[in-house]
Write a protein that binds this DNA or RNA. Structure first.
Length: 593
RNA sequence: GCCCGAGUGGCGCAAUGGUAGCGCAACUGACUUGUAAUCAGUAGGUUGUAGGUUCGAGUCCUAUCUCGGGCUCCA
């Protein structure tokens, strides 16, 4: 059995075995070898191939790999000079590329598998292909990838392989993939009647009644929390003349990402891809004093961004979305405190959904604009804040990855397949106020330039809801559930009481569904269960007589003889407390902080 | 944009180049029910779109649209 610590070694060795198999597969034709690194679930290898590999070729390739392993071919390591390496790989253009970029004094090693396949490699490897015999691997997929990840370079064929120390562990991973499918928001969303996307509007979701309730609930919460914290909501034009973005500077940088149109009188209009320029127009409307700061103009307008084809992904990558946006105007001295305030909001929001995220700090790029001293000071402040909140190592730093207008902190989350997505972000902007030539009057009666903090907490509502669906597998916490209570009268004679229960719950702002159809109660229950309604209340003779409800819980089990008043108390409590778990009796109600 | 794969009634699926079927949902009727699918019947598609090959195309070819996996991981 191969020990866990050798995982990278044999994954790497398997990559060479794959490369040898691919070489054999194409026979005399030249296979150009690029790179073959390990990844979380195995490894991949990039090749320049005479023709693409398809899924139909997988079994043959796997068979070739197994043969090489069974043969027990040794991995032979050899140290060579740069010139020797260049000579050995003279027909391998990507290897030559790599060798040429190595420092002159670098120790270069090559590995030969058996006696007929040599690859440039740092190693280490197993001693013999037999050593990976107990390992389990499976060719997963292919894709095209550009050499060095740059679309101007050659397009290569990438082959992905799942690789684990044993059959059991591989099966575990495949089971995880199956489980992920059951959480996939693209399947669950339409199934739960939350949203769908039609091909007439790619990447632009239709929100159905249930999905709209979800959006409204999390936005209501957002508005309440932000109004408390001194935010003021505005709404601005979705369609603007392009001169707006010429002023902001976006026209040069972002034009390709915009949906534009020309009017009869030759004006060019565009759908706004971000809110900031419009926020500046509002700011410019009058003269501002430092006494107003931080001045926080929030808005949740719909934005449009044109994506390259092949980039869309359900709700996680769309072309039309709403941001829970705000532009906070602050003095340079207020940056640190305001960023802290914003991260407080983020913690409150992510906490309430039971979600965990990882912060990332992106620092000054080469093409930065503005004063270096301001950049340095701001970055130091952001680092201090992150150190204090998340501890050293509790966040990632992407050096040089900030926007040209300022450093930023991103909030990164993972979807059901472990793919990373940015949700929230806090971006400092030293440049936009200059482009729009805005100022504020400082205490000493001089005009100063404000700093803008662009920030979103949810990020895009669409993306956030996509992640919410996956997080909860569609079984949302009570307070955001699109349908909170499903009401099932057993026979027609219970309909009157059912209507009364419905009315009372509505009066308490509970989202209910009432099924007065004369179909079987089992059908009604099934229906609500499929929608993952948290509470299904069943009403029959007994309930009518005692003014009670019977509850069928989403996650199993029932409760009987619950006084109607108590049930309403339970619902109200969960709406207020916003708890993640369903309470099952009125006794579980605790004081709300 | 690039490579591979996929598009069949609202949804999930089937159909060796030879008459497009099934389940769920919908609709009608019967049943009047105590916690996840009562029974019977009816209707609904010409297979993403546009061409082509063929006596004949859901199936083969070309183009196009949309969707899915991937295009950050660096010998």
């Amino acid at each position: 059995m191969i020990e866990e610590q050798y995982l990278p070694v044999y994954r790497h060795s398997l990559a060479h075995i794959l490369a040898k198999a691919v070489q054999k597969f194409f026979g005399d034709e030249t296979v150009q070898l690029a790179i073959g690194p390990q990844i979380d679930n195995g490894f991949y290898y990039d090749f320049g191939l005479p023709h693409p590999i398809t899924e139909a070729d997988f079994p043959a390739l796997e068979k070739l790999m197994t043969e090489i392993i069974k043969k027990g071919e040794p991995f032979t390591r050899k140290e060579v000079t740069k010139d020797e390496a260049l000579a050995i790989f003279k027909d391998q253009k990507y290897k030559v590329d790599i060798i040429n970029e190595l420092p002159a004094d670098e120790l270069i090693t090559i590995y030969t598998t058996g006696d007929d396949f040599t690859d440039l490699c740092r190693g280490p490897h197993v001693a013999n292909t037999k050593d990976v015999q107990s390992a389990a691997f499976k060719i997963a997929s292919t894709s095209s990838a550009y050499w060095r990840g740059d679309e101007h370079n050659d397009s290569l064929q990438r082959i992905y392989v799942y690789a684990y120390p044993s059959k059991g562990e591989l099966k575990e991973y495949l089971d995880f993939l199956a489980e992920a499918k059951a959480r996939d928001h693209r399947i669950l969303g339409p199934q739960l009647d939350l949203f769908f996307i039609d091909q007439m509007a790619p990447g632009m979701p239709y929100w159905l009644p249930r999905g709209m309730r979800l959006i409204n609930t999390i936005l209501d919460f957002w508005r309440d929390e932000h109004e408390t914290r001194g935010y003021q909501e505005v709404a601005t034009p979705l369609l603007n003349k392009n001169s707006l973005w010429i002023t902001s500077g976006h026209w040069d940088h972002y034009r390709d990402g915009m949906f534009c149109m020309e009017t009869e009188d030759k004006d060019v209009y565009g759908l706004k891809p971000m809110n900031c320029p419009n926020s500046l127009i509002i700011y410019k409307r009058k003269r501002h004093s430092y006494k107003e700061f931080p001045l926080r103009y929030s808005d949740c307008d719909v934005l449009h961004r044109k994506e390259k084809s092949g980039e869309l992904n359900g709700l996680l990558r769309v072309q039309m979305f709403r941001q829970d946006d705000s532009h906070n105007y602050v003095t340079e001295d207020q940056i640190a405190e305001e960023v802290n305030n914003i991260l407080d909001i983020a913690d409150r929001f992510y906490g309430i959904f039971g979600m965990t995220y990882r912060p990332e700090l992106s620092t000054r790029p080469d093409d930065y604009m503005g004063e270096l001293s301001l950049w340095n000071r701001a970055e130091a402040e952001l680092k201090a804040i992150l150190d204090k909140r998340y501890g050293e190592g509790g966040y990632d730093i992407n050096e040089g990855d900030g926007a040209f207008y300022g450093p930023k902190i991103d909030i990164i989350m993972k979807d059901c397949l472990g793919r990373q997505w940015q949700t929230g972000t806090v971006q400092l902007d030293f440049q936009l106020p200059r482009n729009f030539n805005v100022c504020y009057v400082a205490a000493d009666n001089t005009e100063k330039i404000p700093v803008i903090i662009h920030r979103v907490i949810y990020g895009s509502l669409e993306r956030f809801i996509g992640l919410l669906i996956e997080q909860f597998k569609g079984a949302f916490p009570f307070w955001i559930a699109p349908s909170q209570v499903g009401i099932v009268p057993i026979r027609a004679e219970h309909n009157e009481y059912a209507k009364e229960v419905a009315k009372l719950l509505r009066r308490n702002h509970i989202h209910i569904e009432l099924d007065l159809d004369d179909s079987h109660m089992n059908n009604k229950i099934k229906n609500y269960k499929n929608y993952k309604v948290p509470y299904i209340v069943v009403l029959g003779d007994k309930e009518v007589a005692d003014r009670t409800v019977s509850i069928n819980f989403r996650d199993g089990g029932q409760a009987h003889d619950i006084p109607l008043d108590d049930f309403i108390k339970m619902c109200n409590y969960m709406n207020e407390a916003k708890c993640l778990d369903l309470i099952k009796s009125v006794d579980e109600i605790k004081p709300i902080e």
